[in-house]
């Protein structure tokens, strides 16, 4: 560890202050961007604040948000899960097929989520036990799951008729879509697990110093299984909810959503180098991605413009994070 060598005390104090200010600045910066964007779109984009548009945003945000929360757990361990979009599509198709065959709703949901979680645990096994790089394992899963999704769906939408299942996604509770309430509950539980529990602390420790965490007696293997399992479970939930919202299974659902999930987490302060990130930050990141996409859409931009902006922002934020890390290491 070369950074053990230190300079004079005065030089040393600087990174400390720099570091402390960083998190606050990042969070406030993000919040101001969200607010500024919201104001700009309110003034320029017709119908941005209409009830219909807000509800649509909240529903869409629920799906992306749930994905991004799972991604946050993985990224904090210095891992990555590229398979969340495919897992979402896969779970959505499975749910549509199960319901189409007349399976009771609770059984269909639980079955799909169990399968998704097991697949996530399997990724964790490959990453920890077989020591494969997370991006390769989850990139492989991205392809595998999408392939199965297309085969199961036969390349077509799968209808299963209206039911309490689709009503759940269509209805509001206290004026806010129930899908959004699901996001809120999941975010609160995730924030508790990540920031208030021992296992949450271990997630950060693994991202900070894997070998050190192992030597400190942390069960790195179990925690790796856990984070990829959680990510897959949440992707499964998002897939089921999206199927309910669309009232049909779409084999293309979730394509490219890994970009949304990773971008939201990273814009929210999660570091691909590990040990940084928060559920609140990710929530703000999702809000930013959603407002940007929706606003540009309302302003009649090509939908791909939002994609371009999102990709560029992701690269920019990772660059800034990299710069921070280097500055800290050389301080």
């Amino acid at each position: 560890m070369s950074q053990l060598v230190t300079g004079a005390p005065a030089e040393r104090r600087a990174p400390g202050r720099f570091q402390l200010g960083w998190d606050v600045a990042l969070r406030l910066g993000l919040l101001s961007i969200v607010i500024i964007l919201a104001i700009v779109f309110t003034l320029t984009a017709p119908g941005f604040l209409s009830a219909q548009n807000l509800e649509n945003n909240e529903r869409q945000m629920a799906v992306i948000g749930i994905l991004a929360i799972g991604e946050t757990f993985v990224i904090i361990t210095a891992g990555i899960d590229l398979s969340v979009g495919s897992m979402l599509g896969f779970s959505g198709i499975l749910a549509a097929l199960a319901l189409g065959h007349g399976m009771p709703i609770p059984l269909a949901i639980v079955g799909v989520l169990v399968i998704a979680t097991l697949l996530g645990l399997f990724s964790g096994v490959l990453i920890d036990t077989a020591s494969l790089p997370p991006f390769i394992v989850t990139l492989g899963m991205l392809g595998i799951l999408r392939g199965f999704t297309q085969i199961f769906g036969n390349g077509q939408q799968i209808a299963f008729g209206n039911s309490p299942f689709t009503d759940f996604a269509a209805n509001n509770f206290l004026g806010i879509p129930q899908l959004f309430w699901v996001l809120v509950v999941i975010a609160l539980v995730a924030a508790y697990l990540l920031h208030c529990t021992r296992r949450g602390r271990h997630v950060f420790a693994i991202g900070s110093n894997l070998e050190g965490a192992r030597r400190a007696g942390i069960n790195v293997r179990a925690m790796t299984f856990l984070v990829y399992g959680v990510s897959a479970l949440l992707a499964g939930i998002a897939g089921v909810l999206l199927t309910a919202r669309q009232a049909q299974g779409d084999p293309n659902a979730g394509t490219g959503y890994e970009l949304d999930a990773i971008a939201a987490a990273v814009l929210g302060g999660a570091s691909l180098f590990g040990a940084r990130g928060s559920i609140l930050g990710t929530f703000l990141g999702v809000l930013l991605v959603q407002i940007l996409t929706n606003g540009l859409n309302l302003l009649n931009f090509d939908p791909q413009v939002a994609r371009i902006a999102e990709g560029a922002l992701l690269i920019l934020f990772v660059y800034i994070d990299h710069w921070r890390k280097r500055r800290l290491a050389t301080a």
């Binding site: 053990l4 602390r201 040990a275």
Partner: peptide
Amino acid sequence: LALAPDLDVPANLFLG
């Protein structure tokens, strides 16, 4: 050092 550099001092003293 087997410390977690991103965590604070108490978190490191009680790591694991």
